[in-house]
Design a protein around this nucleic acid. Structure first.
Length: 610
DNA sequence: TTTAGGG
DNA sequence: CCCTAAA
């Protein structure tokens, strides 16, 4: 039984238009950056949210006697699924079809949770596969997968102990912040809000909200908000399980756009500066940072040192290339053997619904089916091939996901249609270790403009040979630069702001190396003709005369081309590369060059003789 | 801004 | 193609 829900997490990918140098407005950049930040969300948040929704659905479900895995639960019924699919939310079942195995996905994102009345959901995000939702650790904690409390968490036993609740309560004092909330709302604060636990990266409830009221003002009635979604799950063992989730999650899930916490979790948003209070949320940030920043700090630093990457500037080559990697999400709920014992009493949560579970415990297993990786800045050399691109993309995404998922990269589009070139990421079947890069993908991917960092490095850019690949990039080793990819999580936009993105960014104006556009024969023809007429010292005139409409050809380009033409004409045909230029043209090049050189020589030493 | 040349 | 000193 699988609950399938297409999640609306999408990165509102942006693409800075190919604005002429120096004409990009500051305002435009600010907009870009803003969007990046607002769309930030990471996988574990997503999973946690899904878990929240599952609980909500469960709560609202009339079929209370079903276990989460129950097939008769409307929420998980095929009809429901179908309905969502018909709703245009996409059928990822179809998408998933063809995948040999998604077991790893399920495993990777398994979430174990256990609730108790008035508990809170926490997610741990040390690793995508270690997401844990804890509801009221004072009672017990169920771990999914590995022990997520790897640090400072030794107190928590993997298997719940009868006395654990007491154990926790004895050790952990209730922070003042939630004492207040308790007073205000009459809700018993969870002991898990302790410094002790906060230090271990416990994340706050994965609340998703379009308004900042919840996240930003935990002490002003926010608990009410939290409690609004309380759902009590009464197990057959009479253990009450309560998980607090935000009802809005569901609504938001329905929408395609999630505005996520990070933006709202600025320190300044907390009116209470008490260090005992902040850690809960603060740790979330830290956790996030560990997940993201730490991983990429090296590469990012490297790139920035070379001044090739900006958090808000052209991530692309300005030619329309963009990467929209996708991962897919699938959710499922199932029972589990991870027994949780202890717990007692009945739920006292008003209005809370109760559910009886056949098993002692249950897990909500979530598997990511589809979500868009926030953003990927990938640096590739001019000589990049589809294959190297794929490798790069895969590497980046894998890094983002912390290796919790195996990602397969599927190329969409053709290398000769870079405008539509995309990569789709899918869970990589464990049993199909097929090479990720096929040979036919190692064709040169020329039109892609590599960032400046690729410049002045390594070998000369290979010539693009439209006819045959005597220059096939076949054995082309992937240049080091191609690995210098930088996923730029939106959350790090702030941190990245350290770099020169105030005012005018160098990169946005001069950084992007232009796309290489070899001169065609006809262009050479036009150039030769113009030079024959105007000479070799009036490139501006040549430009106006023969390439006025060719925006991408500057007079410098023409001058350079003439230079190479002269060189080409002088070398043996065997040494020439690229699209062959008719010998006739080359002859004219030589003669014209000789003529105008002579004219120039004549004019210089003795102008009056002309 | 253009030229002229080196990288 | 890029970068730039010079003009």
């Amino acid at each position: 039984m699988v609950l399938q829900k297409r999640l609306g997490y999408e990165f509102n990918g942006y693409q800075v238009p190919n604005v002429p140098r120096g004409s990009r407005s500051t305002r435009g950049k600010r907009c870009v950056r803003k969007r990046v930040v607002e769309n930030d969300m990471c996988a574990f948040e997503l999973l946690a949210s899904v878990a929240g929704e599952l609980l909500l659905e469960k709560e609202s479900s009339p079929a209370q006697s079903d276990t989460i895995t129950g097939g008769s639960n409307p929420m998980f019924s095929k009809d429901k699924v179908k309905e969502e699919q018909d709703d245009g939310l996409n059928s990822y079942e179809d998408e998933l079809r063809g995948q040999k195995s998604c077991d790893h996905v399920s495993r990777a994102s398994k979430i174990g949770f256990q609730g108790q009345e008035h508990g809170c959901i926490f997610t741990e995000c040390l690793h995508p596969s270690s997401i844990v939702i804890i509801s009221d650790p004072s009672e017990k904690v169920t771990f999914a997968e590995e022990s997520v409390f790897s640090r400072n968490k030794s107190e928590f036993a993997r298997s719940p102990r009868p006395d654990q609740g007491k154990f926790m309560e004895d050790r952990i004092p209730t922070p003042p912040q939630f004492e207040r909330q308790k007073n205000a709302d009459g809700i018993v604060p969870s002991p898990c809000f302790s410094e002790d636990l906060m230090e271990v990266d416990i994340k706050p409830p994965p609340l998703v909200s379009s308004s900042s009221s919840i996240e930003t003002s935990p002490k002003s009635g926010s608990h009410m908000e939290y409690a609004a979604g309380i759902a009590d799950y009464e197990k057959s063992s009479s253990c009450n399980q309560t998980v607090i989730v935000d009802r809005r999650i569901r609504k938001l899930l329905a929408s395609k756009f999630w505005k996520v916490g990070p933006t709202l979790l600025k320190d300044g948003d907390f009116s209470d500066k008490d260090e005992d209070v902040k850690p809960l949320f603060y740790s979330r940030k830290m956790c996030y940072k560990r997940q993201r920043t730490q991983k990429f700090s090296f590469k990012r630093k490297k790139l920035f040192q070379r001044g090739s990457i900006s958090s808000c500037d052209l991530p692309y080559n300005g030619e329309g290339l963009s990467c929209s990697p996708e991962i897919h999400i699938k959710g499922e709920a199932s029972s589990s053997e991870t027994g949780v014992h202890g717990g007692n009493g009945t739920s006292s949560s008003p209005g809370a619904q109760k559910f009886a579970f056949d098993s002692d415990d249950y897990h909500v297993k979530l598997s990511i089916k589809s979500f868009k990786v926030p953003e990927l800045f990938i640096e590739i050399p001019e000589t990049a091939t589809i294959g190297s691109l794929k490798r790069t993309v895969m590497e980046a995404v894998t890094a983002i996901l912390g290796g919790g998922l195996r990602i397969g990269v599927h190329l969409q589009g053709r290398s000769d249609e870079l405008e539509s070139l995309r990569f789709t990421l899918e869970p990589n079947s464990l049993q199909s270790p097929k090479p990720l890069i096929s040979n036919n993908e190692d064709a040169p991917l020329l039109p892609i403009s590599p960032p400046p960092a690729a410049r002045r490095r390594g070998s000369q850019p290979g010539q693009l040979s439209s006819q045959g690949g005597h220059h096939s990039a076949g054995g082309e080793a992937e240049p080091p630069d191609s690995k210098a990819l930088v996923p730029v999580p939106a959350a790090d936009a702030e941190a990245l702001a350290v770099f020169p993105l105030h005012g005018k960014s160098r990169r946005s104006e001069t950084g992007q190396r232009r796309v290489r556009r070899p001169f065609s024969v006809s262009e050479v023809e036009a150039l030769v003709h113009a030079v024959e007429k105007l000479g070799t010292g009036r490139w501006r005139d040549v430009k106006i005369c023969a390439f006025d409409s060719a925006k991408h050809r500057t007079y410098v380009d023409l001058k350079d081309k003439w230079k190479t033409l002269v060189h080409t004409a002088r070398i043996s045909p065997q040494r020439r590369r690229g699209e062959p230029v008719p010998q006739e043209l080359l002859d004219r090049v030589l003669s014209a060059h000789a003529y105008w050189s002579q004219q120039q020589a004549k004019a210089e030493p003795c102008p009056r003789l002309t």
